[in-house]
Amino acid sequence: MRYFAVFVLVLLASVPYTLGPGVEQSLVTLFSLVAMATWWNLLAGFAGLTSFGQQAYLGVGAYGLYVLALAGVDPFAAIPLAAALAGVVALPVSVAVLRLSGGQFAVATWVLAEIFRLAVTLSPGGDTGVSLPGISGYMPLLRQALVYWCALGLAAGSVLAVWLLARGRYGLAARAVSADPDAAAASGVRVARIRRVAYCLAAAGAGAVGALLFTHTLYVQPGSIFNVQYSVLMMFMVLTGGLGTVEGPVAGALIFFVLQQALSAHGPWYLVLLGAVGVAVTLFAPRGLWGHLGRPLFPIAHLRET
């Protein structure tokens, strides 16, 4: 299995040389979907915190990248910095939002993302959007290939990171917290810390995706990057793929990607079909498609040593 994964990665990494910019472009979209869904799943699937506000950190990542690039940092080198910035911004925010849980938490994160959007819109020149500075030094073909490799690295790195977290000591505690926070605390789990770590890591992950999207589109607007649609999309992918599994978000991202490619030409019908798929999966396969059909490729269970 591991060799197969490495083989697939090598194949994917060679795409800029083999299949060219067209395929490259759409795979960047797929990879950012995988990364987005994977980090949302760490929060909702493993730590039990359903957020509708991850677009706040997509925005922090993108605008963080803007500020860094403006200051002269190379845009590609600035992606991890923008991600770290999103994680740091999330820390004080977590103190406020983690006082809430369930639906209140979801709404609070959404409201917060709106506040972030307003803050950016109201800042000088913020309402019209900005172009990425410092990118014109790259030749288009090279730039696109770099964006592609960053996207691939981000997707693969995110899946690997969440897998390592989920299968370890932290992941076990997080799953206990999401099952029953009070009983988890009574078993010694530091519930607040577990949630805070998940929240900040998920924010950093979203920040990386936001920064990456900016290098891809070269232009960002508060109205689009801070759109709640992103969180809805993350939820759709994770729920259809399989909440609380490592493979689920990847499967969900693939499903969404295929539906989008096949149907987006049909306009609104595409949205109707997406909704129908979402409803059907929640009704007939509440553990998600991977949860019902797949066998864990990235196991997280702790087995007794015999």
């Binding site: 076990l172 505690a173 206990a176 099952a179 010694g188 702790h302």
Partner: peptide, 17 residues
């Protein structure tokens, strides 16, 4: 902790508690 195995239920207490 539903969603965790019996072993994992006890393991989380052993690790955290």
């Amino acid at each position: 902790f539903t969603g965790l195995s019996v072993f994992e239920n006890v393991l989380v207490a052993a690790q955290q508690g």
